[in-house]
Simulated scan of single mutants.
Amino acid sequence: MTTSVMVVALSGISAPYAFAAEVGAQDEMFTLQAHQGNLTEIAAGHDAGKNATTECVRHIGSALVRDHSKLDADLKTLAGKLQVTLPGSPSAQQKKELAAVRAKAGGPAYDAAWLTAQDTAHRRTLALIDKELMSGKNPEVEAAARAARPVVAMHLDMVRGGTCHPAEDAGTVRAGDGGYLAASDADADATLAGDAPRDDSLAATGVLSMAGGLLAAGGAAWSWRTRRRSAQRR
């Protein structure tokens, strides 16, 4: 009896985990727009390497290529897993913005325009991330947004106010594990956002606790029936 109770308890509790989490409209929109944002920042970084007149802007451009390439590699892997088809290029508006900055190549006006454009772009990306963290349904997409947030915030600090701040570069972001910055800051970001840190061990503990309760109840019922039969025989 106790074995049967255990099987029923675990099958009933673990059933929701057997199905893939829902990918809502917000999750899909974030995945598409974040990918296009990554493509745009990678292109902008390459442009800065070719056209910037200051070492500061070239350094930040290199950081954008480095970090957004790695974040996008993780995002594409996730999109493939969730069967979300990604666009192959930045949006028409993003292409227009890139071209407007590129048109100033050849002088200091390029650097100023590039920094201003990056300030605007990274504020927009942070807003996109925060919307996903507020309204997203899929935990994996939310995790990708949470991982990207400290990286994008770092980039914004590097170009804030249209001024170059290369010292804000915290270093390489590793692909495949949510990013170097995200690994250290994800729980802090979740706390600031009012979210409890996610821990699969909590779910496992809940499963075992409920199963233990059911086993205890089954054991009590079996003991009661045994005593009742003994009394009847007497």
Rank of each mutant, 00 (worst) to 15 (best):
G12Q: 02
Y17G: 00
T40P: 00
K70T: 10
P197V: 14
G218C: 01
S14T: 15
P108Q: 09
F30G: 11
G106I: 02
A196F: 07
F30C: 08
I13C: 00
G161P: 05
R228C: 05
L133D: 14
A186G: 06
D199E: 13
A182C: 13
T85L: 01
A127V: 06
T31D: 01
L128E: 11
S89H: 07
R225E: 13
N138P: 08
A186L: 13
D74M: 11
R198W: 08
M1Y: 06
A186D: 12
T226I: 07
R234H: 15
L181F: 10
H122Y: 11
L156A: 02
Y110L: 02
W114S: 13
A143V: 06
K76G: 00
V207S: 10
A170V: 05
A148H: 03
G213S: 03
G61N: 06
A167R: 14
N38V: 01
A9S: 15
A231I: 11
M158W: 07
R227M: 14
L156F: 10
A144L: 13
A103V: 02
A109Q: 13
E41T: 02
L39Q: 13
G161D: 13
G61A: 01
L115E: 07
L32N: 08
L78V: 01
A148P: 06
T31W: 00
S184H: 13
M6E: 10
V152K: 03
V57G: 08
M6Q: 06
L86D: 03
A9D: 10
V141C: 01
A221R: 04
D169L: 10
V141F: 01
L82D: 00
Q94M: 07
R160L: 06
G61R: 04
D119N: 14
R174Y: 07
M6D: 07
Y17P: 00
G219A: 09
A204Q: 12
M134D: 15
G37A: 13
K76A: 05
G212F: 04
D185C: 07
D130H: 05
T226S: 12
A186I: 14
T3C: 00
T125V: 15
R66N: 07
P166G: 15
A196G: 06
G218M: 03
R229G: 03
A20K: 04
T77S: 07
